[in-house]
Nucleic acid binder design. Structure first.
Lengths: 246, 246
DNA sequence: CGAATAGTGTCTTTAAGACATTATATT
DNA sequence: AATATAATGTCTTAAAGACACTATTCG
């Protein structure tokens, strides 16, 4: 153990993390997409112990050589599993306890990602038998998940539902170009309730995070709909007031 | 390395975390209080390398034997430094990178605590020379902090300012019993702007997180003020609308 | 033209801001 | 009574909800 007398340089030369009992630390991801009018979450079947053969959230250990920070680990894992490079990504929360992993004290930094389904190419990673989208729906319960991943997924869903109420978050589940009606449908799908068209559009205009694609429309057997895309480099826009108050 | 053929039990018997290069993992705390009409943050002077002698946020390593989960580590550290057992405590965010600690890849789970100043008894911990409250103010810059703690503190302050706008958070900085005027002053102090008394009170009543202490008043050379306390077991109350929109 | 969805306008409702007024203690 | 702060009431404002109405394309 280091003495107080030595210099910082000397101290670092003698420092060895393996002199201490440390927790396992990993990064896990809750990746959502919407396909076929339904919210889905990405799960992987574990190829190794512990919980071999069970479904779990994608994730893994920090590579102390490759990853420069936590977000880099999350992006690396995301790309391995989905091929998506630039998703909406934010940190959800850390989870850590003595009991969540049979190997011992374990902690994980969980990230929360939204990706438009048109960008996804699922790939089989080296340590997984399978990668699969599972719909989030009452009538279709998810399989039992490894570790505390059922609880983590629940926290992620709450974050999603809440944040959609007062921010532009839902737009990140759509392809790059979309109409206001498509955006409203996305909000409705996630919130599980219809929204008033007029109020919705006033809010979006107020938020000022979309740009009109001049002269570009979505055509159908009706009046064509103006196409929009997200203004670049804006991040999320938050509203002063939540979508509904009761 | 474990083979896929063995049982989970066998696998765990042979598993050794020290076979891998793992990041350092710690828990740090941003502890706020308000004393003498000013927001303060608790800092400790580091007694050991690295950054010996520099001020830093209180924190330390997870004790894999004592701590049952991350929050337990945070509460243990908080109690060691302040004597406070049941503060307002929430997880702020994880921070982790190759460069934040000279010992190597390092990650930390940062917790955010609010404590009423009347409960605090500062104590000198074993690994610190000093524990001290520092005022948060433009005209009084904080010392240069160890690691990335300046950045972490900035994130915590933003969380504080934001959350006070739309929740009952500020009430957790007051002693157990307080008047509505005292509560309003606390909000004003943190937000740095005056609030309208009538609007403020309507909001608090709407939130319904206070209970009147029947017949108990704060006396002065004026009309006595009704005393209130937080309703127990409620957690934070969030408003549908932020305090001000411009 | 009819069907269908896009897009806008008007009135109401809700919660907050501005600000005046009343209430009740001490000195 | 004067003073000080507590507590409440009224009017206005901002943004959302309800809902009707107009616009524009295709078949």
């Amino acid at each position: 153990m280091a003495s107080k007398q030595q210099s910082e340089k000397e101290f670092l030369k003698n420092y060895n993390i393996h002199d201490y009992e440390v927790p396992l630390t990993s990064v896990d991801l809750v990746i959502f997409t919407v396909r076929e009018e339904r919210l889905h979450v990405l799960l992987v079947k574990r190829a190794d112990h512990p919980f071999m053969g069970q479904w779990s959230l994608p994730g893994g250990f920090i590579d102390v050589h490759k990853d420069k920070n936590l977000e880099a680990t999350a992006l690396r894992k995301l790309k391995e599993k989905t091929g998506v490079k630039a998703p909406y990504l934010e940190q959800l929360q850390g989870f850590g306890s003595k009991t969540r992993d049979p190997r011992g004290w374990s902690s994980t930094f969980v990230y929360f990602a939204l990706i438009p389904s048109d960008l996804v190419e699922l790939s089989q990673g080296s340590a997984v038998d399978a990668v699969q989208w599972f719909p989030i729906a009452q009538d279709q319960p998810l399989p039992h998940l490894a570790f505390d991943h059922t609880e983590i997924l629940e926290v992620a869903l709450q974050r999603l539902y809440n944040k959609v109420e007062y921010s532009s978050l839902a737009a990140h589940l759509l392809p790059a170009e979309f109409t206001l009606s498509e955006l409203q449908q996305m909000y409705q799908l996630i919130l599980g309730r219809p929204l008033d068209k007029s109020a919705f559009r006033k809010r979006i205009k107020e938020g000022d995070f979309l740009e009109e694609l001049n002269g570009q429309f979505r055509y159908g057997s009706n009046r064509p709909a103006q196409l929009y895309r997200l203004k670049q480099g804006l991040g999320l826009v938050y509203y002063a007031r939540s979508l509904s108050s009761d």
